[in-house]
Design a protein around this nucleic acid. Structure first.
Lengths: 169, 169
DNA sequence: ATTTTATGTCAGCCTTGTTGACATTCCAAG
DNA sequence: CTTGGAATGTCAACAAGGCTGACATAAAAT
């Protein structure tokens, strides 16, 4: 079924953006995202958590000491929704919430040791899958993969995320 | 762009699979998927539907006359979950469910005219986003994108999907 | 002193996953 | 032919995790 292979894709590009090509891309995205989340989902289920907990753990780990508000922006959910998840993580001792030093209204969020342990377990599972895909596809394909994904993001959200990383060293 | 691939992987690619690279890929996947679903989500919300309805419409359109069971396999949800979505689509006159001719236990699913209309509206929005990303990244990047996604899918699920398409001409 | 901001919480709704129970239909073994 | 099991699909009830709205508190900003 392959459309001639990547060679054909180089030159003439009238076929390149057919609805059929785009549909294949859309379906690939759907199936790949499912594969992408499958392994962490299994681990999370063992602990009684869901994807929402994974996202929180990931970004708290990624940006130590981030505030609730920052997390809301990155995750794109309401505070009520995030709060529910965050509360269970704090209660279970995976996340530490400390009152801000400069602004005492803020809460700075940190992973505890057991929080780091779970985060590592989850991200290792996900990295393993990603690594296997990267290996199978090769470095040039990976570069293309990243380019397309970045073009597909909601620009505003992405810019906010970048700004966030820069603000806190 | 011959992904002469595995050859290059041997050599200059120790940096290529660092945890940092993989983490960036993981986050790109997260943000991109959100962008990928954002436009259809808005349209669906106007109609009082969710993503599950979109998925059902997409695959019914893709494989006219498919059965509930086939759809379950492709979508990877329980029949009860799919049934709820399917019921509303049938009630609203977007999907037509006909008793199977050869096996009367089965239901063959078809989009009605208004079902096709909504499906087209949704997929156009999604294709627009995908097309923009493809244009921005270029054909070589797209080839890589597809390669990585395909390597990332759950093999079993994907194989079932392919088998499905072949079974019904 | 007053207003605004950051956070947390309660209540209630919706979508979409889950499991369990059940009806219908088909098919194969007796 | 009948009967019991397997396949298919429907209905009911529950849980996770989105959402909105209302409100409380503490701290910062004006």
């Amino acid at each position: 079924m392959g459309q001639g292979g990547s060679g054909t894709l180089g030159g003439e590009n009238l076929l390149f953006l057919t609805d059929e090509q785009l549909r294949k891309g859309i379906e690939a995205m759907f199936f790949a995202y499912r594969g992408f989340t499958a392994d962490p989902d299994r681990i999370l289920a063992e602990h009684g958590y869901g994807r929402a907990h994974h996202r929180a753990l990931h970004f708290i780990n990624r940006t130590h000491g981030t505030t609730v508000n920052n997390l809301l922006t990155v995750l794109g959910v309401t505070k009520q929704s995030l709060n529910r998840v965050l509360r269970t993580l704090i209660e279970d001792g995976l996340v530490d919430s400390r009152i801000g030093r400069t602004d005492r209204r803020e809460r700075n969020l940190y992973l505890t040791e057991s929080g780091k342990t779970l985060e590592r377990k989850l991200s290792e599972a996900q990295r393993d899958r990603m690594r296997a895909a990267y290996r199978a596809a090769g470095p040039q394909a990976v570069a293309g993969f990243r380019q397309v994904l970045e073009a597909m993001m909601d620009d505003e959200i992405f810019r906010q995320y970048i700004a966030l990383k820069e603000r806190r060293t």
